[in-house]
Every structure is written in C-alpha cells, then in structure tokens.
Design a protein around this nucleic acid. Sequence first.
DNA 1: CGTGGGACCTGAACGC
DNA 2: TGCGTTCAGGTCCCAC
Length: 270
Amino acid sequence: MPELPEVETVVRGLRPDLIGQTIRSTEFFWAKTYHQPSAPLEGLLGRTFHKLDRRGKYIVAHLDVGYLWIHLRMTGRLYFSQHLQGEDRWTRAALGLDSRYLIFSDARKFGRIGFCLDLDWLEEKLGPEPLTLDAKIFGRILHRPTAIKALLLDQARIAGVGNIYADESLFAAGVHPLEPANKIKPAKALVLLTHLQAILQRAIQHEGATIGWYRKPDGQKGSSQDHFQVYGKTNQPCPHCGAPIQRILVTQRSTHFCAKCQKKSSTAVS
DNA sequence: CGTGGGACCTGAACGC
DNA sequence: TGCGTTCAGGTCCCAC
C-alpha cells in the first residue's frame, strides 16, 4: 500500500483512537515483523501513546518513553479489533490496548514494526518531506545526473514518494521519467515540485489509493486510484493527447508515461 | 559512491 | 480444474 498519502491516511484514522491508550500486551505471530535491531519488546509494556505522526512512509508513535514505528511496506494494514487474531488470515502482530487490539495484518510479511528510544537513525536515513519542501532545496536535490524517476523514489533524497505518485507527478509536469535530474531547468523543476505536492495533497483528500491490499483503518478503500492519469494505464490513451501510455522499467520499477507529452530534453540515459 | 540484481513473501490474474 | 508464469504500492544487501 503505502506511499505518503496512504500512510498519512492510516495515521489520521488511528490517531484519535490511539492517543492516550496504554500497551498491555504484545504478540508477534511472524517473528520477523518485529524489526531487529530494536529495543527489547518488553519495553513496550505499560507505555502510553502520546502522539502519532508520519515521517516519509513510516508511522511514528511517540510513547511516554521511546517510539514505536511501523512500516507497512507492500501489504501492511492496521486496524482495531476485539480479537487477538484480528479479522483476517494475515494477522502478523497484535498490540493489546485498554479495551481492544491494534492489529497489524500483512499478507506478504514485508512490513516491519520496531521500538526505539530516539529517532536519530530515521532522520539520518530519510530526506525532507515533499509537502514542505521548498524550491531551493528541491533544486539542490536535482543536482545530479540520476534519472528523475529514480531520484524521486530515493527515500534518502525525498521521503514518502513511491512508484504511483512519482509516475503521476512526472506526467502532470510533462517530464520524462528518464530525464537526468540535473538537465531539468529551474522553472521546470518548480512545475514538477508544484505538481508533486498538489498530487500528494489530492491523494490524501481521497484517502489513498486502493489497487490491491490497502485499506483505511476502518476497512474502507481509498479513492485516489480513480484519479490516476497514467499509473497502471499501459496502452490506454493518454488523457492529454490520446497516444498510448507506455510502460518501461526504471531501476527495476514499472514506469508509466506518455512518450508524446513527456519528451526527454537530452539523449538517452543508461 | 552509485546502481543493477536478487532476496524477502504471498496472492491475484492470466495463459494454456 | 490445475499448473506455470508474471506482476505487485517497498526496501535491504551484496557484487561490481
């Protein structure tokens, strides 16, 4: 599931019900879900939720002592249940709260949960938040010959953008996904940043995109997928010019774009 | 230092 | 029906 808008939606959905709750028990049905290295699991017992935030694609809960973090990766879901085993067959962890469980369900088992006493490691790992990124810093990030799509996906450069919203933003801005970032002129970079932010904001308003596994904590689907222009639209007509949407691979990731609306300004990139 | 490939996993969709 | 293949919103690790 999980790009910035989906994670933000999950955080907003959980926040009112989680703040003030105390962790009474912890259960991990799939051991690897509890990320190592992490502080010992017992440290979570008796901890109270003070604040729930998002940083990039990480959910970060501020406890009275330390931090609980969760990364949904591809198929992670979070919801409340009266049952330790959750409501589906993919429950990997359960945190016992005051009167119910916070369930972590994750079909592909890629998701991770951890407990730490500081967030320095996270800040060292992640670039700035795209929604509050200013043009000057964005311009500095583009000062390298990397294909722009690869750069948008690099969490150490910008935190939170994933495959869908990278494709959608590049299309909206008319930038070819393989365009070397340092070939993008400042004016065009500003257009890209503006579209990226608008698209992420709109996706948050639509409560994320449900293509497969993603659900809001209340079990409902998001509707952001109804507004995609190019993602997953291979061979369908471009909404601007009617040319068929192309699908290529960029750093192993499926990439959708319109070859007519998104021209490369320079020669091919490897 | 950067990137390409494989690994980590399961399930859905599709071709035969 | 069933088998095989391909693909998936993410990230990590290792070889080059």
